[in-house]
């Protein structure tokens, strides 16, 4: 299980302009050597169907997929190809109908929902197309929420959230509620929320779909920097060809099979 106490240490000191610090990188690489060869997440022969009109419609037909630490994989494919379903299975939000799901070396597909919730809490960060921030909470509270769920006192969680928001260029928007921020700012808050617990796996579903090209590029630069510097793995589902350049590896999925 991840410790949340070293969150700020693993994040780059100047994420606002997405530049890296050499000593910071060196300390990161030393810490991750041991697990470097083990995939953060892997699926083997994953199958999933939905019932439509009483008939089974197979969305995933035996997919093998893995993602290494520090790697950014972009999953693309047409609508209905199964990419979002695969992402949800990787995020323990959806139970597969066959195959194996391994997160951080542990088979998790048959774990009870409560334990899967703990896996999500400690190992996975989510970024959603529509940000999915809690409307009543400020940016700082939204970012602090995963830490609070991990049991960190609210004051400390907010302090760390404030630091991280400053690093993503939202130091002046800590108290702002989501409805008072631009889509680009909301996505940066969502990114900060996804990484605040120092997850091993970041799952992003169409992270640029609700953003203009400038904000989209900013969000992807930020995501890429976070992945590169923290050693987390990222899986990004997208339709957007403009962001393919940010990928270490691209996977195309069609008719429930990886091409």
């Amino acid at each position: 299980m991840l410790s949340s106490t070293n969150t700020s240490a693993r994040l780059p000191p100047s994420l606002g302009d997405f530049t890296l610090n050499a000593s910071f990188n060196a300390s990161l690489s030393a810490g991750h050597d041991a697990a470097a060869h083990r995939p953060v997440a892997a699926v083997k022969g994953i199958r999933k169907y939905y019932e439509l009109g009483g008939e089974k419609r197979w969305i995933l037909r035996g997919v093998d997929f893995h993602v290494q630490p520090g790697e950014c994989v972009i999953l693309s494919g047409p609508s209905g190809s199964g990419k979002s379903t695969l992402l949800s299975i990787l995020g323990c939000l959806l139970t597969p109908d066959g195959g194996e799901l391994i997160i951080d070396g542990r088979a998790v597909e048959k774990l009870p929902p409560a334990q899967q919730a703990l896996i999500r809490r400690d190992l996975i960060g989510f970024i959603f197309q529509r940000f999915q921030l809690i409307r009543g909470l400020s940016a700082e509270e939204n970012v602090a929420l995963p830490l609070a769920l991990q049991g960190l006192p609210a004051a400390e969680a907010k302090r760390r959230a404030g630091e991280l928001l400053a690093r993503v260029g939202l130091g002046d928007h800590r108290r702002a509620i989501p409805t008072r921020m631009s889509p680009g700012q909301c996505q940066r808050v969502a990114l900060a929320r996804a990484v605040i617990t120092n997850p091993k796996l970041i799952l992003a579903d169409e992270p640029t779909a609700a953003l203009d090209s400038h904000a989209g590029a900013e969000a992807m630069n930020l995501l890429r920097a976070l992945v590169k510097d923290s050693g987390a793995a990222a899986v990004v589902v997208t339709h957007d060809p403009r962001i393919l350049e940010y990928a270490d590896r691209q996977c195309h999925i069609e008719n429930g099979l990886l091409q």
Partner: peptide, 15 residues
């Protein structure tokens, strides 16, 4: 606010 509760679930909130 179903999406917010779904978000809470997604980020690891237990029942």
């Amino acid at each position: 606010r179903l999406t917010e509760f779904a978000t809470l679930k997604a980020i690891g909130a237990t029942e």
